[in-house]
Nucleic acid binder design. Structure first.
Length: 873
DNA sequence: GTGTCCCGCCACATC
DNA sequence: GATGTGGCGGGACAC
């Protein structure tokens, strides 16, 4: 082979030379550009990725001429498509899949330099691997899923999600992030990096895809590979999965030797990101969008590639996991991420008793969320075997205690079920998730139902969302303050989500939130927060779930939530609804509940903004639920109390908002928030209006899809991550710091009581990210997304609480389904989703008043949910 | 004017 | 020293 140094491009000569045959051909090609582009468009729209066949023909027929066609025709993305057209997505390992760079460069009539760019990106995804000098081995997409899974894991380990959120916040409002938390995160990452041998540049290898060239891994300047991986990680850990170049570049710069984020370096990074993005676009992994912020329109990219096995639907999830398992070699090799890789491989295998439990003790609950994800994946891929639970128990000493309360609660309802015979057990079914319409109250630990995971894992860092309908998620003591409760949809009503204060006492209500609070936020919401300790906002869901994929609207909601979280107390009130919110009713209700529960609902002031996981916002539900909820509240409070609430003084403001389209009913409930769970495809206008209202105070991402840079008209869609209506505390008085409440009852008990009191009705918890949510789908019991039919009650402390690992048995999430209250859309018979293990009654049962509307509800404990443990030291 | 990214210089690694 | 690799940024093109 001749000199491989960067050849001098003859483009200019050729382009201006009227005498060469190629010039004539160029003219012809130019005339045919529209056809070529149309064909390319059609190819790009080809879903099976075989779009490049024709492109290959183009390559052979007129590639050389295209060099002079236009700048776009010479783009790296197009070149990559041509390259990809040469190789199958799933090559036969038995065949020769070697790639000779020289040949490719020659055939594609491009410089070797350009091929390197493509190969580096493909290498980062393990679609190719370097086999020798000037040679690569083509793997196609056979390992892509596995690679993405690993990358996601690594990205979570590195807390890219938090970093992105920090940067976004910094970009948005210069809001001070909790430095303490930030430092903790950074320090932890550094420690982990040091433990793994390197801090900055690291390349995540895939088991079985090793680089045979001795120099490959020794080179330090493979930044494009690493950058590409990190870029992908950002998408995988981001939610919504839209990453702007600004954010990505800043993160990449930030990790790059602590270099100054000077403008030049930033520009350089952006240039590289463009290169990477072009290849990723060719791979159909991302697509170009634009985010419109207050500062203007910024380029961004949205992940459109395959969801990870634990993120996508359950059906594909299991299959992919199994497939990945089969692909997972016995010996895993991950540079700098050995643990992640090993765990990843382990996760891909059916969970074994000896499987490492990865609940983290890190103050940041990102880890916890990650661990939960791991658990989910294990569980999803594992047979519904109770044996696993026992094994987990052995590994988790805390587990028995924590499960004790759950068991007690379960036992209560179980006994009731047995007494009435109304309960219907839900047999374990890997793919069910048909909980809609079920009148069974479930208590479960987070990772039981694959269907749940499928829906919930769309927002992996929102473990609560993954809970199956009618289930109670067990939340480790790490995040005792996070007590979401699923509020089943009222009969003929809309689902509601409510945030209530956690029972966890806070010694010093005025104290600045500890880093652990950040963990709570991280766990609850995809995006990090940075709100001040006194920030308090309820989030009103504004939009509906759009579809299987993470719709821009959903992303908008999510972003809005995160923005709300990040909004400091100084932040403007985004909505007028919150203004008229009165804490009084909350106090009344709280008093009522207190009387019922025998304990105050809250012992500490509501000083912290509430966060709503977008997944909970998207739960579709029947319309007109607001009156139902109001009625429920009235049942509890009494009309007189409700009426008097306007004048009475209360401690904790709460907002009740309908989760479904329709008018928003604002009601105050004690120490909590009712979060509307929007119905997909509805309330768009309202959402938009709300987004407009919030625009002043929140960052709006208006995403305009630009499939091909400037070449195709792209239907604009807007993603406004921060557009979710934030219901801030009505006032300082509304969120008083009165710590008069000494103690709060267990959230589980509280929710259980609420249910029995009629405040909570049976329905399916929603998951905004459940894919393909349409009203029709909602009725499909077989679909995991049917969970969205249920409302949810979020019980979450208004103020940040330090993690209290010592607090056992925190029941974080309760999904209750009101028996006898048929979900309007739930038509099919309840589908069991778990193994349910009856548990003995516990003293806690006595706390729950058996009066009122105590309806008999069978209680089952999904045994696989027991798979909760602490992270290995 | 800004976004996009082609192009190729050049440094470094490897042979 | 030749060759392979890829970081890097100028600057042209697209919008």
């Amino acid at each position: 082979m001749g000199p491989l140094t960067t050849p001098k491009k003859g483009r200019e000569v050729g382009s201006v030379d009227p005498w060469t045959p190629t010039s004539n051909l160029k003219m012809l090609i130019n005339a045919a550009i529209p056809d070529i582009r149309n064909r390319e468009k059609g190819l790009e729209m080809d879903a099976d990725g075989r779009e490049c066949v024709d492109s290959a023909q183009d390559t052979e027929n007129g590639e050389e001429s295209e060099r002079w066609i236009s700048r776009k025709e010479k783009s790296l993305g197009l070149l990559c498509r041509k390259f990809l057209a040469r190789y199958p997505d799933h090559p036969n390992p038995a065949t020769n899949n070697d790639i000779c760079l020289d040949d490719v460069a020659t055939e594609l009539s491009v410089e070797r330099r350009r091929i390197y760019d493509i190969m580096n990106v493909l290498e980062s995804l393990h679609m190719v691997s370097r086999s020798a000098k000037n040679r690569y081995a083509w793997h196609g997409r056979t390992k892509l899923s596995q690679t993405l899974d690993i990358l996601k894991k690594v990205g979570e380990d590195h807390k890219y999600s938090q970093q992105m959120q920090q940067i976004r916040q910094g970009l948005l409002e210069k809001e001070e992030f909790d430095e303490e938390e930030k430092e903790n995160v950074e320090q932890e990452v550094e420690v982990e990096d040091r433990e793994q041998g390197q801090k900055e540049l690291f390349f995540v290898e895939l088991p079985g895809v090793e680089f045979k060239a001795a120099s490959v891994n020794s080179r330090k300047d493979k930044s494009l590979r690493v950058m590409s991986q990190k870029f992908v990680m950002l998408f995988l850990v981001s939610n919504p999965r839209v990453v702007s170049l600004d954010v990505a570049a800043k993160i990449l710069i930030g990790e790059d030797h602590g270099a100054e984020q000077d403008k030049n370096k930033f520009k350089t990074k952006v240039r590289r990101l463009y290169d990477i993005a072009n290849v990723l676009r060719s791979l159909k992994l991302i697509e170009k969008v634009h985010v419109t912020e207050e500062r203007g329109r910024k380029p961004a990219f949205e992940w459109v590639g395959p969801e990870l096995p634990h993120v996508k639907g359950i059906g594909s999830s299991v299959s992919e996991l199994q497939r990945s398992s089969s692909q997972c070699p016995p010996k895993s090799k991950v540079i700098l991420e050995p643990r992640a890789n090993v765990e990843n491989c382990a996760k891909k295998l059916f969970s074994s008793p000896g499987a490492k439990r990865s609940f983290t003790r890190h103050p940041s609950l990102i880890k916890m969320a990650k661990s939960i994800q791991d658990d989910r994946r294990k569980i999803n891929s594992a047979p519904s075997s109770p044996v696993k639970s026992s094994a987990r128990d052995a590994s988790n000493p805390d587990f028995p205690n924590k499960m004790a309360q759950l068991a007690a609660i379960c036992k209560i309802e179980l006994d009731q079920e047995e007494a009435t015979g109304q309960g219907r057990k839900k047999p374990a079914a890997v793919n069910t998730g048909k909980t809609c319409g079920s009148q069974t109250t479930l208590l479960s630990t987070p990772n039981t139902d694959p269907s749940v995971s499928a829906a919930a894992q769309r927002t992996p860092r929102t473990p609560l969302a993954v809970l199956p309908a009618g289930s109670v998620a067990y939340i480790p003591a790490h995040c005792p303050s996070l007590i979401p409760v699923l509020l089943p949809q009222h009969q003929g009503g809309a689902p509601y989500a409510i945030y209530l204060q956690s029972p966890s006492p806070r010694p010093n209500p005025l104290a600045r939130p500890q880093p652990t609070s950040y963990a709570v936020r991280s766990m609850t919401f995809e995006d990090k927060t940075g709100q001040s300790p006194t920030g308090q906002c309820a989030v009103q869901a504004q939009s509906a779930c759009r579809g299987a994929d993470i719709s821009p609207l959903a992303q908008k909601r999510m972003g809005s939530v995160s923005a709300c979280e990040s909004s400091p107390p100084k932040a403007k009130r985004p909505d007028n609804i919150s203004k008229d919110t009165s804490p009084k009713l909350g106090g009344i209700l709280q008093a009522r509940l207190k009387s019922c529960l025998g304990a105050p609902l809250s012992s500490r002031p509501s000083s912290r903004a509430l966060h709503l996981d977008p997944e909970f916002i998207n739960t579709p539900g029947g319309a007109g639920a607001s009156p139902m909820l109001e009625q429920s509240l009235e049942n509890i409070l009494g009309r007189e109390d409700k009426a008097a609430s306007d004048s009475e003084l209360v401690s904790t403001p709460v907002r009740v908002v309908p989760l479904t389209p329709g008018r928003i009913t604002e009601t105050l409930v004690p120490a909590g928030y009712y979060i509307p769970i929007s119905q997909p495809g509805v309330r768009d206008k309202e959402i938009q209006d709300l987004a407009k209202e919030n625009k002043a105070s929140t960052t709006t991402y208006n995403i305009y899809q630009t499939p091909t840079a400037g070449s195709r008209p792209s239907p604009a869609r807007e993603i406004t991550p921060t557009s979710i209506r934030l219901l801030k505390p009505t006032s300082a008085a509304a969120s008083p710091y009165n710590a008069q409440k000494a103690q709060r009852p267990s959230p589980a008990i509280l929710n259980f009581t609420l249910q029995n009191l009629g405040l909570i009705s049976g329905s399916s918890p929603g998951n905004g990210y459940a894919a393909s949510q349409t009203p029709e789908h909602l009725n499909t019991l077989a679909s995991p997304v049917s969970l969205q039919q249920r409302g949810m009650v979020f019980i979450k402390p208004v103020s940040p609480l330090p993690l209290q690992p010592s607090v056992p048995g925190q029941v974080a999430l309760i999904s209750v389904q009101q028996p006898l209250m048929a979900t309007p859309k739930g038509t099919g018979p309840p589908q069991p989703s778990f193994f349910h293990t009856p548990v003995p009654l516990s003293p806690l049962a006595a706390v729950v008043p058996a009066s009122a509307h105590m309806t008999t509800k069978p209680v089952y404990i999904p045994q696989r949910k027991l798979d909760v443990s602490m992270e290995d030291p």
